[in-house]
């Protein structure tokens, strides 16, 4: 049975407001420290100005197993400048100086969190103003302890669901998740090309029957048209690799402006269908 999930962070309020306005959430992903440490906070502000509702901030990791080449290269660039989990928390804190309302979700891999320790991480993340945490390689069965500590610190745990997730796994996710769930719309790694909208549309009601949280859809969303189509069948559109590509292709100093322009275009396309 679906259950009501109490509000922990800024995330539920954002979805409530959007729902009242008949709009869908736009959730851009960028890798922290890419192309360099100084660019991250300006890019985050540019994303909000362009119409982002929630920001997923990628914590770079040396072995990003679930990511495709685009996001892996962004991690390598960030790590070349020594971007650590501590730096990512500092970016959020700096972002909060000018933006108290936009939720920030840290997305990354388990080991940097393991190295910092669960207690230290939960405390530091709450202090920095983090709203949600998505650890790609912590499935529900391995994340009960961290999820509990994050919840106590007022931070949502975001989980992934995939085309191969069976009913029982959706139940397990429903038991631990808060904020929203992230439906990975295709088999493969981030940045893959194909997106089967019919299949996504078929799966979402099934997820809704288990999970009483907003559903974001990501993987394979590359432009306004795909974003609009996905928005029409879900609660939120997550777009990552395409933005990271834009950052990669931008001349020095231009990343925030270019990625902002792209997000604004996607925002317009999404709102046009409402």
């Amino acid at each position: 049975m679906p259950r009501d999930v109490p509000a922990l962070s800024r995330i539920p309020g954002v979805f409530d407001k959007l729902k009242a306005a008949g709009r869908k959430a736009l959730i851009p992903f960028i890798t922290a420290g890419d192309p360099d440490k100084a660019s991250t906070v300006p890019i985050m502000h540019a994303l909000v100005t362009a119409g982002a509702d929630i920001i997923e901030l990628g914590v770079p990791f040396s072995d990003p197993m679930a990511d495709g080449p685009t996001i892996q290269r962004s991690s390598e660039r960030a790590l070349k400048h020594g971007t650590s989990l501590k730096d990512c928390l500092a970016f959020v804190r700096e972002f909060r100086a000018r933006d108290e309302v936009t939720p920030v979700v840290l997305m990354g891999y388990a080991n940097p969190i393991e190295a910092m320790g669960y207690d230290a991480f939960a405390a530091a993340a709450a202090l920095a103003g983090v709203d949600g945490v998505l650890v790609v390689d912590y499935p529900p069965e391995e994340s009960v302890e961290l999820t509990g500590k994050l919840r106590a610190a007022g931070i949502d745990s975001i989980f992934l669901l995939s085309p191969t997730s069976l009913d029982q796994r959706m139940e397990e996710v429903a038991h631990l998740a808060s904020g929203y769930v992230y439906y990975v719309s295709l088999k493969g790694v981030t940045g893959a090309a194909h997106l089967d909208l019919t299949e996504v549309a078929r799966k979402i009601p099934l997820i809704r029957s288990h999970v009483k949280l907003p559903i974001g859809v990501g993987f394979g969303i590359r432009d306004g048209a795909t974003a609009r189509a996905v928005a029409s069948i879900s609660d939120a559109v997550v777009i990552g690799s395409r933005l990271v590509q834009e950052i990669e292709a931008s001349p020095p100093g231009q990343a925030a402006a270019n990625v902002g322009a792209l997000v604004a275009e996607i925002r317009r396309a999404m709102d046009a269908q409402a």
């Binding site: 197993m65 679930a66 388990a110 790609v136 390689d137 912590y138 499935p139 069965e141 391995e142 989980f159 992934l160 669901l161 995939s162 191969t164 997730s165 069976l166 796994r169 990975v184 088999k187 493969g188």
Partner: peptide, 12 residues
Amino acid sequence: GGIFVAETLMYA
């Protein structure tokens, strides 16, 4: 030990 992979691999 355990299983620390993305959801996409859990089924497999």
